[in-house]
Nucleic acid binder design. Structure first.
Lengths: 146, 146
DNA sequence: TAACAATAAATCGTGCACGATATAAACATT
DNA sequence: AATGTTTATATCGTGCACGATTTATTGTTA
């Protein structure tokens, strides 16, 4: 028996599981808003800076365009973003928030922080723990990125 | 601008990204062994204890059977596990390692710890950091589970 | 400027995740 | 024993992720 290969010793399995469970916690809130978690990530990118090409959105989320393009097509069908050809560079698709996409920011602000805070209220982690967690995850991400 | 809704302030986005990047780091090693990351998780469960019903495997991985069943069907097609009806309870499918599935443990032990250690060698986190990280993820998992 | 290389998106195929539903076997209750 | 309920697994549909390829446009260089 190789203890290195035991599930209980795997940080990665915990990351994978925690990510899935947190995403599941988001789901009912996001479903009420009519979106999914990856769509919420795209919206956060656009709320921060509207009118971005597909590449910039993908780069911000560390995703490939072959993931983001279909995601944006679904979001366009939902009426929360629009896409148009870039003027200086016609290869680009510039993605913009529709009025509906902009309104979602207020709904998200009203529902998500409180809703998620409630679901995690039983968790013993403190603010400083989450901060250090974020820093440690950043150092893993920085190491593996690109 | 609601700072709560900024990507940079989201622990969840970091979890999601770190999980994807670590899984990507596993991929070339696992591909050489002919398996995927979720299949590797199932194998770890079976290396620990062979001949388990689908439900127990799913429960150990905190996954639903509608995820695990197709996963096991693919693994059966690859010849690394076999499935047979339970004898006392005919609703169950008992999953067992084939000789090929057992051999994979040695190959995994030879390739994965060293391969992943190398990829993460540039990461500044120390053993204690990973330990605390694991504990903190466990408390998130415990809070959100079921 | 004609040919070639690089870049931005899109498309295709496969494998998860997961909600919803279906099916069969076991269990429980009348 | 017949009926209803629970349980174990499977099936179906949708939405990611992502490797591989394609297409259109831009840029580069002979």
């Amino acid at each position: 028996m190789h203890t290195e290969l035991q599930l209980d010793n795997q940080v990665c399995f915990r990351l994978y599981t925690a990510t899935r469970l947190i995403t599941q916690a988001y789901t009912p809130i996001l479903t009420a808003l009519g979106i999914t978690y990856p769509q919420y990530l795209v919206l956060m990118v656009l709320w921060e800076k509207d009118n971005q090409p597909v590449n910039d959105i993908a780069h911000r989320l560390l995703l490939e365009t072959n993931t983001v393009t279909p995601l944006l097509q679904r979001m366009e069908k939902l009426g929360i973003v629009s896409r148009r050809k870039g003027e200086q560079d016609k290869r680009q698709q510039i993605v913009s928030l529709t009025p509906k996409g902009k309104e979602l920011e207020e709904e998200a602000f009203a529902q998500i922080p409180s809703g998620m805070g409630e679901k995690l209220s039983a968790c013993p982690l403190k603010f400083e723990d989450y901060q250090r967690l974020a820093q440690e995850l950043d150092s893993i991400i920085k190491t593996l990125k690109k």
